[in-house]
C-alpha cells in the first residue's frame, strides 16, 4: 500500500470510476426495479388516465374527460371517498389508541408478559382472506356466535353487522382492530424505552397518572404515533381485501360476478380501492381506473406531506430526527 505521489495522482480517476461502478452495481437491482416497476408504470398510468381504455382495444385519447367524470358525473366516486374517509378517521386513531393501551398493559405484569404479548400479536399475522371469512361467520346476524351471545344477554334485535349498511363499517373496524398486534409491538418497544428515572422524578413531584402520561410517556412515543399515523392513512386508502371478500360473500356471488356486488350491502363497503377495481377490471374502464389511481396517489401524497409538516410541532425525536 505504498504509493508514490505521482502514482497516486494517476490512479485516482480510475479508482473513482471503479468506486462509482461499484456503487452503481450495488444500487442496480433497485434502479432497474424503480425504472421498470415504478417509474414507467406510473407514467403509463398517467397516460392511460387521459384515455379510454377497455383492455380489449387500443387506448383512445380522451383528454381530461376521466377527471371531469370523476368530479362532476360519478355518484359512486363520492360514496367511495366518504367510505374511505370514514374508515380512516375512525380506524387510525382507534388503532393507535388501543395499541397504546394494550402495550401499556403489557408493561405492567412482572411475569407472563410474553404469553400475553403472543396472544395480542398473533392475530395481526393471520391471512386477511381467512380473517375476513372468519369474522363474516362470527358476526353472521342469524347464526353467528356474537349475535347468539348478544341475544342471550337480552339484546333481541342485535345488529346485522356485515349484512346491514349501518353496521357493516363498524364490523369492518372491529375486524381491523383485531389485528393491531404489530402496531402494539412498536408501541411496546417505545414505552419500554422511556427512561425509568423520568417516571421516578414525576412521582417525586406528585404527578397524577394522566400527567405522567401526558408529560413523560407521550413525548417519548410521539415518533411511533407519527409513524403509525402515516402508515395507517396510507394503508387506509388502499384497503381492499377484507372488503372485497366480505362483499362477495354477503352477496353470495362468485368472483365471476364480483363486479356488480363489491361494496355490498348498499355500497357501504365500497372503499376507494374496491371501486377502482370494479371500474377497471369489472367494467372494462382501465382509463378511468387509471385516473382514479392517480387521484389516489395525489391525495396520499398530500396527506403524507401535511402529516410531516404538522409533525414538527408535536413529534419529539430524542436523537435529533432522521440520520
Amino acid at each position: 500500500m505504498r504509493f508514490t505521489v505521482g502514482a497516486e495522482r494517476r490512479r485516482r480517476p480510475r479508482r473513482n470510476l471503479k468506486r462509482r461502478l461499484t456503487i452503481l452495481a450495488f444500487m442496480s437491482p433497485w434502479i432497474v426495479g424503480f425504472l421498470g416497476f415504478i417509474l414507467y408504470p406510473m407514467l403509463a398510468t398517467l397516460y392511460f388516465s387521459f384515455t379510454k381504455y377497455d383492455l380489449l382495444s387500443n387506448p383512445i385519447p380522451y383528454g381530461i374527460q376521466n377527471y371531469v367524470y370523476m368530479f362532476t358525473k360519478d355518484p359512486d366516486f363520492w360514496i367511495a371517498v366518504r367510505n374511505t374517509v370514514w374508515i380512516i378517521v375512525w380506524g387510525v386513531p382507534l388503532q393507535i389508541g388501543l395499541s397504546i393501551l394494550t402495550a401499556w398493559m403489557l408493561t405492567k405484569p412482572k411475569r407472563g408478559m410474553k404469553v400475553y404479548r403472543t396472544i395480542f400479536f398473533m392475530p395481526s399475522l393471520a391471512p386477511p382472506v381467512a380473517v375476513a371469512l372468519a369474522f363474516l361467520f362470527i358476526f353472521n346476524p342469524e347464526t353467528g356466535p356474537i349475535n347468539v351471545l348478544l341475544s342471550h344477554l337480552g339484546w333481541h334485535d342485535p345488529p346485522l353487522w356485515f349484512y346491514g349498511r349501518q353496521w357493516s363499517k363498524p364490523a369492518m373496524l372491529i375486524l381491523g382492530l383485531w389485528g393491531i398486534g404489530s402496531t402494539m409491538i412498536i408501541f411496546l418497544a417505545g414505552l419500554l424505552d422511556v427512561p425509568r428515572q423520568l417516571y421516578e422524578a414525576a412521582d417525586i413531584e406528585g404527578a397524577s397518572g394522566w400527567q405522567k402520561f401526558r408529560y413523560v410517556t407521550w413525548p417519548s412515543i410521539t415518533p411511533v404515533v407519527f409513524f403509525s399515523l402515516v402508515t395507517g392513512v396510507i394503508y387506509g386508502f388502499q384497503f381492499f381485501t377484507q372488503a372485497y371478500v366480505s362483499s362477495i360473500t354477503v352477496a353470495g356471488v362468485t368472483t365471476t360476478q364480483a363486479a356488480t356486488s363489491v361494496g355490498s350491502p348498499n355500497r357501504s363497503l365500497l372503499f376507494y380501492s374496491v371501486y377502482l377495481w370494479q371500474q377497471g377490471w369489472g367494467n372494462f374502464r382501465m382509463g378511468y381506473a387509471s385516473a382514479l389511481a392517480w387521484m389516489l396517489f395525489m391525495v396520499t401524497m398530500v396527506c403524507t406531506i401535511l402529516l410531516v409538516k404538522t409533525s414538527k410541532r408535536w413529534v419529539h425525536y430524542a436523537g435529533g430526527g432522521f440520520r
Binding site: L35, Y40, L43, A44, L55, N58
Partner: peptide
C-alpha cells in the same frame, strides 16, 4: 423507455 412502454401497452389488442 416510457414511450417504448406506452407503445407496447397500446399494441395489446393488435
Amino acid at each position: 423507455l416510457a414511450v417504448l412502454g406506452l407503445l407496447a401497452g397500446a399494441c395489446t389488442a393488435g
